[in-house]
Nucleic acid binder design. Structure first.
Length: 364
DNA sequence: AATTCGGGGTC
DNA sequence: GACCCAGAATT
């Protein structure tokens, strides 16, 4: 063992007392607020989360308010934040806390982790921050700090490394001051022990850090190369009648669950987008010829989207599939609808081009 | 063990 | 462009 594990927490806690960040979800130990912030912060930056956190709390001040609301209301407040299964799980967890725990958050790790969307690390964070009981965290910040502190040179996401890091995270987590320690070690990763150019001169752990001793602080953690992401093509139909456009709600399960979009369809490899657009129009029970209306590119975590837009003026009634929610809204009204990101980009074009113009509005 | 899930900030 | 982010759930 390169150093005494118990020497880490006092250094971190002292530093945190002086340099810790002030954030909207700090200064409270309300388990509901702690939980909400932890879910929003999964794979999402602090600056992005803050306005969503504030809006969500205004609309749903307590877990009972959230449990009483429809899933649609939660998704609407989540629109733009990404990873929408979090909103779905959040709503389900609120109902579980209400139904099974009388509206009070459970305090044990087992019960916390049994809540939808709460995994091992988030359960540890809630346990520590809300209840001030020892809870072990292994998020991106802690993973990076530990890889450097202990000079772990293997891929940190490999299973064996992950197990090793969890063991270290447990060994370093103190019995006392859990509320502060959890946030201290995450703050260190967020402010000093950053992915690039770590600020070692200001780091309270610099004297213990194996990576620094070895001159590896800029090279660790050493992640395996990521696979390149494929590009998928889709078509979307801008179907206008009397200044209103047809939109449909996506199924709650799966990608972008519960968000709204213009009618869209995948374009398979080797298929012509115009042919797919015609088929989609026909499937909606409409006559007419789609005309090219621009293009939108959007990047997801595991593929890139090449979205081809087609416009068609229609006079017939839309035939939307059974069980699919649909609306006909003006461009202005669409701005208040929880559209997903790619189709949100379409909207900005749509408003600029009011009233409708047939020419292409392809973006550079 | 690998894949699925978003979107924005940063360099 | 590539990388990262207070990861969890699914297969």
């Amino acid at each position: 063992m390169p150093f005494d594990p118990e020497s880490v927490a006092p250094l971190l806690l002292d530093w945190y007392g002086r340099e810790g960040r002030e954030l909207p979800w700090r200064g409270t130990r309300d388990p509901y607020r702690v939980w909400l912030s932890e879910i929003m912060l999964q794979q999402t930056g602090v600056a992005t989360v803050i306005p969503y956190y504030q809006r969500f709390l205004e609309r749903f001040p307590t877990v009972l308010d959230l449990a009483a609301a429809e899933l649609d209301a939660a998704i609407e407040l989540w629109a733009g934040l990404g990873y929408y299964s979090r909103a779905r799980n959040l709503h389900a967890a609120a109902r579980k806390v209400t139904a099974e725990h009388g509206g009070r958050f459970p305090e044990t790790l087992e019960a916390l982790q049994a809540l939808p969307g709460v995994g091992r690390s988030t359960a540890g964070a809630i346990r520590a921050i809300a209840f001030d009981r020892p809870g072990v965290i292994l998020d991106g910040n802690v993973r990076r700090v530990l890889c450097r502190l202990l000079a772990v040179t293997d891929d940190p996401r490999a299973t064996a490394t992950e197990k090793e890091l969890w063991r270290w995270a447990e060994a370093l987590t103190p019995e006392n001051r859990s509320h502060d320690y959890a946030q201290a070690i995450m703050d260190l990763g967020a402010t000093l022990c950053t992915p690039r150019r770590p600020d070692c001169p200001r780091c309270p752990l610099a004297g213990l850090c194996r990576a620094k001793a070895l001159g590896l602080e800029d090279e660790l953690p050493r992640r395996a190369a990521r696979k390149s992401v494929p590009t998928r093509m889709q078509v979307a139909l801008l179907l206008e009648r009397d200044g209103r456009f047809l939109v449909r709600q996506r199924p709650f399960s799966g990608m972008l669950g519960g968000l709204w979009e213009f009618p869209a369809s995948d374009v398979a490899e080797g298929q012509l987008p115009l042919v797919v657009a015609r088929r989609l129009l026909a499937d909606l029970g409409l006559a007419g010829e789609p005309t090219e209306a621009g293009r939108v590119r959007h990047v997801y975590s595991h593929f890139k989207l090449d979205l081809r837009l087609y416009r068609a003026a229609v006079t017939d009634e839309f035939a939307v599939a059974e069980g699919v929610a649909s609306r006909r809204l003006t461009a202005v009204e669409l701005a208040d609808l929880p559209l997903h990101g790619a189709h949100k980009k379409v909207l900005s074009d749509l408003i600029q081009s009011q009233p409708s113009t047939p020419e292409s509005r392809s973006r550079p």
